[in-house]
């Protein structure tokens, strides 16, 4: 399955500069938010939204999901 994601603030530096924090990723079926974060190399405390809803790291992803990741220090939690 494929998900879209955007890394906000300083997290964008985990990607090449030209990506400006945006990208898509192919994940195995049943992958969770934690798997996405691990693939992106996110080590900081973060807030994750899936399709504009806050979700925990255990949240199972679906094909076509849109993920937003904020560093916890910047807020982002709704």
């Amino acid at each position: 399955m494929r998900v879209e994601f955007r890394l906000y603030g300083g997290l964008r530096d985990l990607l090449p500069a030209e990506a400006r924090g945006r990208g898509e990723l192919e994940l195995v079926t049943g992958a969770a938010v934690a798997d996405l974060l691990a693939q992106l190399g996110v080590q900081r405390t973060v807030v994750v939204a899936c399709n504009d809803e806050d979700v925990p790291a255990t949240h199972a992803l679906q094909d076509g999901d849109k993920i937003a990741v904020f560093s916890a220090v910047s807020g982002g939690r709704i």
Binding site: Y8, D13, V47, A49, A68, S71, S74, G75, G76
Partner: peptide
């Protein structure tokens, strides 16, 4: 790297 200004996005989203 981005200063305290980094938090604008998160504050808006919240």
């Amino acid at each position: 790297k981005y200063g305290t200004a980094e938090v604008v996005a998160g504050q808006h989203r919240a």
